[in-house]
Each structure stands twice: as C-alpha cells, then as structure tokens.
Design a binder for these strands. Structure first.
Lengths: 156, 156, 156, 156
DNA sequence: TTTT
DNA sequence: TTTT
C-alpha cells in the first residue's frame, strides 16, 4: 500500500512536436513541453497571464501514443508525477536540477486533425533514432541512463 | 474562465521545520520541503523506494497556518500548482532553474502533537524577520530573496 | 484549515443544454449532465465502454459562465465536490438519494463554436425564471426545487 | 487512449468497520463509508460543518488490504472513480440510484494502531462469506447483491 | 456511521 | 532533510 502521493494534473498545449528516443531494448521515450497559463497579479495589481512550461516525459506505450497522436499545439489532459533529476554540470561543475512530469495517463483534447502540427515531414526526422543508437551500447535497459540527458539537452 | 489546469496533489512528510520570511509589507512566506516516496523498479528489476523532495512555498494566511502547525516530520496533504523560476547565477553566469509547488490548500494529517518538531526555541528564530533582512543579497542559496519577491508578486 | 478532502475531476461531454434557474435573489443555478466513459471488462471478458452520467450543479458566476458558453456536446474539464442530497419521496414515502457534483472550476475544452448546441431559441426559455416559479411544488423531477434551495443555501 | 476522466480524491474517516464479501470465485469485495466535512455557510450566514458520507467499494487485492488495515475511524486518502448503479425497487417498483466510489488507490493515514477499531473478533465474522451467500435475495439493503455482482463484473 |  |  502506498504511503505517499505525488500526483500532477495538467491541461495545456504542447509547445513543439514531441521528441522520441529509444532505449537499448527498443522501449520508446517521448519528451515534450506543455504550457499552462496561470492568471496572477502583476506588480501593479493587475491580472496578467503567466505561462508555465512543464517538461514532460513518457515511456513505452504512452510514448508511442504520443508519437502517433500528439504534436505541436495539441491540447492535452495529463496525469503524472513530479520527478527532479540532478547532475553535476560538466563545464561549471555545479549541481544542476531539472524537474520533469512523468506522464502516467493522457487524454487528447484536440481532435486528431487539430493543432498546428509540424507537418508530415517532421515525423520522418522524429523517427531518426540513428544518432541516438550510435551512443554507447554499454547502457543497459536503464531508461533513465539511456536518455543521458546533459546540460545541453535542456531546451530552455 | 480558466483555459488550462496546473494542479499538484501531494501526501508526504515535511523534511525540516518550515522557514518563515516576511515581505516588505509584513506578509508571511513559508518555505519547506516535503518528501514523497515512489515505488519504482531499479536496474535489477526489483522494486525500490525512491524518495522525491518537493520544494513548497506558501503565502499569507496559508504561510501563517504552516508556521503555527507544521514542523519537521508532519504528514501533510497538499494541493498546489507547479511554478519554475529561473535566474542567472551570479558566480557562474549560468541559467539556473528551481521548480516549486505553490501551496493552495493543505490538510494536516498528523495530530497536532505528532512529529518530531524542532522545539519551541526554533520558533523564536523563525519569527525573526530582522536576520532575514540582514542577509547578504549575494546569498547563493536564498532563492526567495534572489528573485526579489515583493508584495506585488504574491499571487493570492 | 481543512480537515478533509472531497474533490472530483471530470473530463467529458455535456448531455443536453444546461438548465438555468434562479434563486429568489436572482442568483443563477445551472444544472446539467456530463458523460464520462470508463473502459471496463464485460461479462465475457472483453473490454467495453461504460458511460457514466454525472449530475452537475453550479452556482452564481460559474452558473452564468455555463449559461453563456456550455451547451449540449461541449467537452469540459470540471473540478468539484461530491454532494448527496436525500428526501422522502412524496408518493412512495421512500427515502431517495441524488448524488451531484458541485462545480468549483471548469475549463471549456471545445472551441466556443463547437458542439451540437440546442440553438439560440433555447436561451429565451432558459432565462425565464418566471415559469420556474410557477411550476408545481409537486413536480417530481425537479430536484433542485424539491429541496427548496434559497439564497442562504448557496455555499459560495 | 482514454477519452474522458472520472476521478475522485478523498481524505476522510471511515464510519464503521468495512464489510468484506466474496464473489463466487473467491475475489474479495470491500464496502465501507467515508466521511468528509465541507465547511459551508448556513442559513444565517455562519460557517457550519456539513458531513458528507461516501459509499466506497473496493475489489480484489485492494479489498484485502482494506480488510487487513482499515477499520472504523481510520483516516484514509482515496483515489477512485464515481459509479452510479440503478435498479428497480422490488417493493415500490421505483427506480433507485446509488452512487459509489470505486477505490483505485488508497493511503492509510492513521498509524496502524490508531482508530477505535472493531476489535480482533470482528475479523472472524467478516471473513465469513458463508452467511453472505445464505442471505435472502430479497434483502433490501444488500446493494452489492441486489445488482448481482459476479466475477465477470469486477472491473480490475 | 467518522473525526477534531 | 521526512516517514514506515
């Protein structure tokens, strides 16, 4: 029985076409960003919209669904959990943190034809796992490691 | 009417006594960490517990409730929203990120007498907003101060 | 500080145009049904869709938003709380129960032009609070009326 | 991919020791009630507590956990979904409805020794599926039986 | 029928 | 840094 709860619910729009990578064993990993807009008061007391960008990660079957149906502009309902990874930056030696939402469940809220999309051609480039596969095969089936996110991968 | 949803639900234990600071106008700001434990598979396929630490921030009346009732070890139910702040590190010049949960609602799940607590003496130092104001603006780990939160920034 | 949590999250489609009524002081009350579809196993072990209909109630400003933007077919994200009302049926004398979701927040997920809608003419009859007041108090299916909601009962 | 969301989050206290029944194939079914308290304004404009009782149902492994750890007074965090069953009352012939929360996940918030509990002896009578099978099919308040839940109906 |  |  669980002892704690770590749950996120998001409804927002996808910022760019998702990126799909593959672990050594072929399992899919999808990463993408999702924007939500909170209405907050600014410094002059007026209500302004503040856009929050969330870093989402999905694995396996969920990643495949995302590859097939989610694109730039898609409106999604997401359930997931918060996870913060940390690493020592290779240049500065400083501790760095990246907080991500691990997607557990999703509902596509745009019709399958809606959203701006990156066009059919982007699908081709997305499926280009070639450069990824050239990375060290020493990576077992460790999905976290297999993505070897470095500082340079951080998209903002 | 809202256009998006950014919602977090947590149940976990507080890592240390909350820190209370005060904005220029006297509004309270409480910061503390909360641990949740996810059960995940490790590299050998066995189930292991992975503790996730969340950075929580509360304002005004919620901060005062936290000051009065929450301490190290308290078990809490939290509703909030995810917010990521960024700034340029003064030493390395690098972009840094910190993701926090802005507390919207909370339920104290430990009895009021439960938890280890930091002792009554810690309350004295906590309420000392003076020492806070005296801290160096170069203080590296004082993230709240480093983003210069004023009354106008408080979103409630 | 709250001691308990009673929270519902729904994403689904509205079954009919919402009905709008008015309390004695003019406050709006919107009632409508929302369908969600759970995928469950049927008696032969196959996955089937089971549609669940939820009875939603909204008050005041939320009710007015619903009157203005929600119609048959609208896709909505809803946050609310569960409330079960009971009364003695006037005919059979039996205790009856009706569980409703009191809407706290909503997000319109269809574009404002989407959904089938009931046509502009339905708006005219909806806003007629007069006809509502003239209805017989014995009206069997008018559950809102049957519990005599007055301004004082409205919890927002 | 899911098309809709039907999700409930509750934190509250269990009203009585859970009742455990068994389907024909031995699968456990646990039913119990959970109280949440909403703070609402009464007719004189004062804040009053309104207790809401929720009917919870759990199946299989979750039901067994409930049998082993949950008792009268236990404080629980619950995730589940709303389900309304209907049937024709055998006496009055009227349509009746019962809304239940199907438990998906739970967290025990009281320590294992806390709560009043029904005493160890109650465990013996609880596990007696025999008496359940012997009950009259006309039994009015046996809602689980009245809808003839069989193994095939269990949605997990 | 719970709990504080 | 929590908790069981």
């Amino acid at each position: 029985m669980a002892k704690s709860v770590n749950k996120v619910t998001l409804v927002g729009n996808v910022g760019k076409d998702p990126e799909i990578k593959f672990a050594a064993n072929g399992n899919a990993i999808a990463t993408f960003s999702l924007a939500t807009t909170d209405r907050t008061k600014d410094q002059t007391g007026n209500w302004t919209d503040r856009t929050e960008w969330h870093n989402l990660v999905a694995f396996q079957r969920t990643a495949e669904i995302i590859r097939d149906y989610v694109k730039k502009g898609s409106k999604l309902y997401i359930e997931g959990r918060i996870q913060t990874r940390s690493w020592d930056d290779k240049n500065s030696g400083e501790k760095k943190y990246r907080t991500e939402i691990i997607v557990g469940d999703l509902v596509l809220l745009s019709g399958r034809g809606e959203g701006e999309g990156g066009g059919g051609s982007s699908y081709g480039s997305r499926s280009g796992s070639t450069s990824y596969d050239q990375r060290s095969p020493a990576s077992a089936d460790d999905l976290v490691q297999s993505t070897e996110i470095t500082d340079d991968d951080i998209p903002f």
